[in-house]
Amino acid sequence: MALVTDTPHRQGGQKARSSASRNRARNGGPRIGSHIFLLILVIYFITPLWWLTVASTKDTAGLFGGSGGPLWFDDEFHFVSNIQGLFERQDGIYWRWLGNSFLYAISGGVGATILAVLAGYGFAKYDFRGRGAFFGILLGAVMVPLTALVIPTFVLLSSVGLVNTIWAVILPSLLSPFGVYLMRVFAQEAVPDELLDAARIDGAGELRTFFQIALPLLRPAIVTVLLLSVVGTWNNFFLPLAVLSDPLLLPVTVGLNGWQALSNAGSGGEALWNLITTGAFISIIPLIIAFLSLQKYWQGGLSLGSLK
C-alpha cells in the first residue's frame, strides 16, 4: 500500500543509524523541562493504578473510609485475606475466570495470528481472482459496530449448538481483519518477489517457499499482530457477556463486571468491593508483565507493523 512506500529506505536508515549520530542530533544536556513534563505524565498515568494497588490491600470497611485514605495503605493490611476471599468466593471461581481469560486470549490470539499471517501473505503475494473485492469488503466491514453482530452471532452459534461453550468465544475472536491488513501491508514490503521467484526456480513448492522464505521475514509483524490480537481477546467483554451463561466459562472481565452488578444491586445484592478491587488488580498484572518483559519485541514490531 501507498502508506508504506518509504519503508525500505527507512530500514536502511535504521541500520545505518548509530547512537552517536542520534546523540549528535540532540543538543545535549539533561533537560529539566522535558523531565518535569514526563514526570507529570507518569503521575497522571500511574496514579489510578497506584490507587488500585492500594485498594487491593483493604477490606470493604477500609475501602469505605480506612485510616490511610484512598491513596495510602491502611494500618491493617488485608491483601492476603482478600486473596483468600478470592479463593473462597464460589470455590475460587475468580481463578477459573482468570484461567479462562488466558485460554481465550492465547488460543484466540494465536489462532487469529496464524490466519492473519496466511491471509496477509496470500493477499500480498498472489494476484488471485476477487482479491481486490475481498480486501475492500474486509476493510469496510470493520466500520460496522459490533452491537449489530451480537444477535446474529448468537443465533448462528446456537444453531450449531456452540452457545455457552468455549468455542462461542474462541471462534469469533479468530477474526482479526486489522491483523490481515497489517500483515498484507508488511508482507508487500518485507518479502521481495525476487526472493520468492528464486526459491521457485530452485524447485521449492508454494508452501515451502512460504515457510522457509517468507515466514522468517514476517517475524516482526507476527509479534505485533499476535500482541494486538491477544490484547483484543483479553479485553473481550461484549461477546462473552452475550454468548456465555455458565459462570465457569466466563473471562475475568465479564466475571468482575458481574460482581460489580451484584454489589450495585439492591435486592439480593452483596457488597464485594474488596474482591472486585483485588480481582481487578490481579487481572491486570499478567498483561503488564507481558508488556514489560516483551518490550523489545513489541516496540520493534509496532514500529514496523503500525504503518511506519
Binding site: I114, L115, A116, L118, G122, D127, F128, F134
Partner: peptide, 19 residues
C-alpha cells in the same frame, strides 16, 4: 495465483462465518 485463495481460505471461512 490460485494459491492465494488457499492462503486466504482459513481466514475467509472465519470472515464469512463471523462477520
Amino acid at each position: 495465483q490460485r494459491w492465494g485463495w488457499l492462503f486466504v481460505a482459513p481466514f475467509a471461512l472465519i470472515f464469512l462465518s463471523f462477520l
